[in-house]
Design a protein around this nucleic acid. Structure first.
Lengths: 236, 236
DNA sequence: GTCTATACTTGGATAGAC
DNA sequence: GTCTATCCAAGTATAGAC
């Protein structure tokens, strides 16, 4: 998928030329991420990005066809690298809710610092100005949503919590939360509030995990009782 | 605050001229909202907006000084009108958690349909491309965050839930959730997933409210016990 | 593959007529 | 207050030299 544009390169280039080409592409992609982060989608002109990459503006069009092509390649790059980093994290600790919370916190702190979620946010927000881009961005977001779903399923799939809401819904909320927290962190100029919320989530997860001792015999029964008994509802 | 730019109008204009001026300003603001919604921040040129408003491009600069000035005025307009609509909703039903959930659902459904949250999302995302705009947007978001905080305080302030997380944190998460759900709804081309999540939230709120019968004597004791008793932790 | 040069378009912003 | 006309800056994209 990241190689979708590789055809732009001749199949017979020499090794050195290929290296240089790859280096240029990589530099442009990195510069695009940086520009998206610092100047937003609206600040991402071919000239601006090329300048940061230390190369010529025309190379954006040679390698990626258009500015939006470059931005999508940047999203691919971030996605691929981050996905590779997160999957083991989630598959490792993800069997428990506290593990998921801790993993999510680490991931998010790292991504806030590196601006990875910002790339996504900017592309989602900027997409409507480029015909057809919304679908392209949605395609690239899909694996993330699946990863979130898998993480939630692994963490609460067989616990009583799963009966409170479908895994898909919880995952949707999680992804939305990531995006929203990123925007607020950007606006506030600080990720503190977002990280505090994650810490709180981790603490609550630990609490629920211990309450999980109650399991079907405890927590669930309690909730079920609350759901069914409607007689004493005079609470003001 | 919405009158900040009123000085652009002479103090001695005739009644008719003032009406026309106000109408033009209003048309531009409405067109800006519509453009932000359909083409995003990056698609909001003075020419594009003016065309939708059915007036001349130069009037953007006459009335608002700059394109970003117009966009901020659009945000002011949305904020003011929506705030007026929500405050009674929240103050009316907000004394209970289910009331808050129901109110939030109504608000959000309306705003999704009208694109009000989109305006905010686009301005937050687009802000980094205009020097100083981030602060302006943050200022305008502040009342919303306070409203969310007041709503949360009113709904869970004296309930056992409030001891699980500070009201400020919950409110921060709520606002982030609104923003993130808006982005996903936009990308999906459908608010269904967001609304389903709100419905779930409302259902859980009703559940918690009924569990609130347990109050300090029930739910809290349970949670406290889970927090302190660590001896039987052999749960696999 | 990369550069320079350039054609063309769009956008921000202002001057001046009405 | 609104419009036309216009200037200028910035952006996309391509052609052609190296």
């Amino acid at each position: 998928m990241a190689m979708a544009k590789a055809g732009a390169r001749s199949a017979r280039t020499t090794g050195g030329a290929r290296d240089r080409s790859a280096a240029t592409r990589a530099a442009l992609v990195q510069a695009a991420i940086e520009t998206l982060r610092e100047a937003g989608f609206a600040g991402c002109s071919a000239r601006e990005v090329a300048q940061r990459a230390g190369c010529n503006q025309a190379l954006v069009f040679y390698h990626f066809g258009s500015v939006s092509g470059l931005l999508l390649a940047a999203l691919d790059d971030v996605s691929e690298r981050r996905m590779a980093a997160y999957r083991p994290l989630i598959e490792g600790h993800g069997a428990s809710l506290p593990g998921l919370a801790a993993a999510a916190r680490e991931i998010f702190a790292e991504d806030l610092a590196a601006g990875h979620v910002k790339v996504l946010v900017e592309l989602i927000a900027g997409a409507p100005s480029v015909p057809g881009m919304g679908e392209q961005v949605a395609e690239r977001l899909a694996p993330w949503r699946e990863l979130a779903e898998a993480a939630v399923r692994g963490a609460v799939g067989q616990s009583p919590l799963a009966t409170l809401a479908p895994v898909k819904e919880i995952a949707h909320g999680l992804v939305a939360g990531f995006l929203g927290l990123e925007m607020l962190a950007e606006l506030d100029g600080s990720p503190a509030a977002a990280l505090a919320l994650f810490d709180r989530f981790a603490a609550l997860a630990a609490l629920v995990d211990q309450a999980g001792l109650l399991g079907q015999q405890g927590l669930m029964v309690l909730l079920a009782r609350a759901l069914t008994s409607r007689e004493g509802e005079g609470r003001r």
